[in-house]
Design a protein around this nucleic acid. Sequence first.
RNA 1: GCGGGGUUCGUCCAGUCUGGUCUAGGACUUCAGCUUCCCAAGCUGGCAACGCGGGUUCAAAUCCCGCACCUCGCACCA
Length: 484
Amino acid sequence: MEYESVMKLLLERGFFFPSSEIYSDAPAGFWEAGPLGLGLRNRFVDLWRRELIRRDGMIEMEGSQIMPASVFRASGHLESFADPIATCKQCKSATRIDKLLEKHTREIIPEGLRESEYQDLIDRHNVKCPSCGGQLDTIRLFNMMFRLGIGAGNDDAYLRPETCQSIFVDFLRLFKVMRCKLPIAIAQHGKSFRNEISPRQSIIRLREFYQAEIEIFFNPENDTKFEKFDAEKDTVLRIKKADGTEVVQRCADFVDANILPNRLAGYYLALLQKFYGTTGVDLNRARFRELGKMERAFYSSSGFDFEVETSIGWLELVACNYRGDYDLSRHSAVSKRDISVMDGLDKVTPHVFELSMGVDRSLYAILEHNFREEEQRVVLGLKPFLAPIQAGVFPLITRDGLPEQAQSVYRQLCVDFSCFYDASGSIGRRYRRGDEAGFPFAITVDHQTLSDGTVTIRYRDSMEQSRVPLTELSDKLRVLLAYS
RNA sequence: GCGGGGUUCGUCCAGUCUGGUCUAGGACUUCAGCUUCCCAAGCUGGCAACGCGGGUUCAAAUCCCGCACCUCGCACCA
């Protein structure tokens, strides 16, 4: 099973490991990033900035992780991010009560009822446990946000369940101070927190996790004027529609067929797909999946998940949602502030299309898609520009002054590149260790180095070597590590 | 949260049924040295574990009870 192999590598090499693991009461869903995991994530975020933020002229901000209750009253998370759950007295299975009631009564059950109101409905309709027909126990509301008390007054606040709320809350100021014009994308990378009932699968379902979110604000009336679309209109997308059929065709055809809500959405889906191609995720094992009405988040009127096929099935990496003017209108209503902006001569409340990327699972997908077990070795074939350690520096043997010379090469490189010096065991062992940790290159100092000042560069993927003068080594590495 | 299956060095495995000889053993990894002129070679030596808490017992890795975590299903989701 590949998932196990990848996880084993991640644990043994210190990419990621459980938080507070020496204590037995450490809760699930919290993971540390070790040196290699942190390095990989930093490079992933660098690539995200390069391929999305800078390429598209987005602006980036960083909001607070703790926000007051009103933010989430407005966003709908206080009402809708909670699941009413009842346990069966007989078979002990937990059931989502709202869904059960809707099935029973064939009516829409309003969101955000109190426990007692759900209880009334259950009693009135005589609803039983769906799996065994037993008596249902009392209702609990389970909100997935972490609640905090601020200051001496212990005022209600929450750890943000998604990074985007600060983008909406700060929209007006950002728009003004950066002198934005619609359409404009505002991005944020950082941590979000969700009190999952049962986190599973290591870094794929976390309670504390990284998101990289992009909120694109636009005037829905002006989609035909969205000129950037032309650059991506011929990009081929694979979309699995909500009815289960799969369509592969040009971005423009999806827009014409009304499968995509507008040209702007098509453009950003194409951009997103290209970004993932650059990370080394295998696009032949990737698709967009259109979400049906029941699957979408409460704020979403149209949604597509970008999914990647892995050894544990299709994995959602990005949620792409058409949020309409839901967020800005709600924040405007609750805060009693006007959050509309001028678009030419029109005053509009912009609509939002969002790309909400799960960073940790993206890293997992990149790792799994680039991991291979060959006959003689295990290789983490990360793109050089994503590799947390870019070069190993080794003396061929540990005498004749080679270690000293290799140390000096290491010191020459270590400020500009992340390098790892290793002199233990045989040279072959060091190459193999590097392969497993994803070092794309290895610099070896040998006896010839002492006489002519050249070293060898050994390439991880081909295992071939070439000689480079020390004077050209930094430039050579820079070229090898460039984005491609 | 519910149900099934699990938890012994970093990893894999032995020991658990049938409590004592376990001061918990081996292999791989790792570390220190030796060796080594390019792909996990060899030699010597070292570090390193019974998930946590309670109980039974003269005695617990071993039996019992809680809890935690892992894993598979349900549910939820980036």
